[in-house]
Amino acid sequence: MDWSVIINNLPFLMKGLWMSVKLATLVVIFAFPLACLIAVGRISTRRWVRYPSAIFVNAMRSNPLILIVFWFFFLVPLITGKPVGDFASVMIGFVVFFSAYFTEIIRSGIQSVGRNQIQAGLSTGLTYFQTMRMIILPQALRNMMPALITECVIVFQGTTIAYVVGLREFLNSTFLITEVTLRPAELYTFAAFVYFVVCFAGSSLARQLEKRQVRT
């Protein structure tokens, strides 16, 4: 084992890690509001809103992320008619895919608050959207915090899949260095270690929040 290969290539690897973090953060920032909308559609009483949302969520959830990335990598340039860059194509695919998973978390969060809260809100004269925004969502958000953080960890793990289209995130950077230095043992061990540290921190945080919620 010769760990100097990591020290020597650290700037390149860290650039890759930064790319992974950036991708994951942007995906969460865009997927979450989208998921809020779809979740409200999913529990709507109107069929023409509820069914399309349900079909979208189930279609996304029954396909592997890697296939969705391939789909969007092919479709986005075809639809826009011009190349939009790897990063944008991958990000759109990720946002669409993960918004389905966030939708299910938000939906169960909203449903955990209970129907009589909605009725109470409506009966005090608030509109449906005011009830959602001021009464239901703040409570729902607190209930679903652990699940949301776990999902963010999954998004971060999912960014590795951008490797298949050659986006230079952390795993792809590691791969490129192994091609040059021929030291896969050290490099992949290091990559696994870095992913473990980040994801373990995230999942421990989720677990702490969950414990606190059970107590109160």
């Binding site: 999912g158 590795t160 999942s203």
Partner: peptide
């Protein structure tokens, strides 16, 4: 459990394949 859940599957595949 913590070990296998907190490393992305793709990284695990590479570790098994290359390392």
């Amino acid at each position: 459990v913590e070990f296998f859940r907190n490393i992305p599957l793709l990284v695990q595949l590479f570790v098994w394949f290359f390392v």
